[in-house]
């Protein structure tokens, strides 16, 4: 089974994000970046399928030079090779624009399966996988926890709302967007990190893919959320704050 895994590099979860000078994007200068967590689950599922059925796992990501480190991490965890779509204006493209880049790089690979996380932790559109399927003319399923190979394709466990699940079957090739929590994520071993250095990482310039970059939804500005509620912050030492809170919950909110 040949599996392409589309991954994204995003700001680290606890990184302090600030609005950049343009007001249209965040200040990236001091940020640390990491692999988008839902994509880590997509990579894990791909590696487990390869462990069971053999084949090849190829990681693909779009973004500037720094994205190379996240692709290297995927290689260290066990991906066989990587494709880096070099693109410095990722944030200016909309979900369709980014999906066009990925689909353009994936199509010539002719994979059996394309996996990606259900959403990114930075923009959170949650659309890339579904649009890639549309552009490649492939069936898709979303919010998948586990994938089993069948004789004619795959059977996938899909999460629905409020604790419900269903199995969904489709032929391959297909595109699946992965929900988190289906597997335990593996760490890269020292041997894996060493091997990753010798694995193929091919760069493709975004321009080579000829994808239309004009967004139909333009991110005009980024603002700080306006508080809807006035939160009473309780200060002092932990002991003082705790005592103040108990008093408020009793006398003011009357919930104790």
């Amino acid at each position: 089974m040949k599996i392409l895994v589309a991954i994204k590099q995003v700001p680290e979860r606890d990184a302090p994000v600030r609005i950049g000078a343009s007001g249209k994007w965040i200040e990236e200068a001091d940020l640390q970046f990491a692999l988008n967590e839902p994509d880590a689950y997509a990579l894990e599922e791909a590696l487990q399928l390869k462990d069971k059925h053999g084949g090849e796992v190829v990681a693909v990501s779009a973004g500037p030079e720094r994205v190379g480190s996240t692709l290297r991490e995927a290689l260290a965890k066990g991906a066989d090779r990587a494709i880096h779509i070099v693109c410095d204006d990722l944030g200016e493209r909309d979900a369709l624009g980014v999906a066009r880049l990925l689909a353009g790089a994936i199509k010539p690979e002719d994979p059996d399966l394309v996996l990606t996380g259900l959403q990114s932790e930075d923009l959170g559109h949650g659309q890339t996988g579904v649009i890639v399927a549309e552009l490649l003319g492939l069936p898709h399923a979303t919010l998948i926890l586990h994938v089993e190979k069948t004789e004619t394709g795959i059977k996938a466990k899909r999460e629905m709302e409020e604790g419900w699940f269903q199995f969904i079957e489709t032929s391959t090739p297909a595109v699946l967007t992965m929900q988190s929590g289906g597997n335990k994520l593996r760490y890269a071993t020292l041997m894996g990190i060493k091997r990753a250095k010798t694995k193929e990482m091919r760069q493709i310039a975004a321009a080579e893919l000829g994808a239309d970059a004009t967004p139909t939804a333009v991110l005009e500005s980024i603002v700080l959320p306006q508080k809807k509620k006035s939160t009473q912050m309780l200060s002092g030492s932990p002991k003082e704050a705790a005592a103040a809170l108990v008093e408020k919950l009793k006398a003011e909110a009357r919930v104790l």
């Binding site: 579904v130 549309e134 919010l143 999460e159 939804a217």
Partner: peptide, 22 residues
């Protein structure tokens, strides 16, 4: 909803549009 997330991005793409989601 989960269901909309499953198909609306593809539907919008069919019209050359990007869904403004959530």
């Amino acid at each position: 909803t989960y269901q909309v997330r499953d198909y609306a991005p593809a539907l919008a793409a069919r019209f050359g549009q990007s869904l403004i989601g959530d």
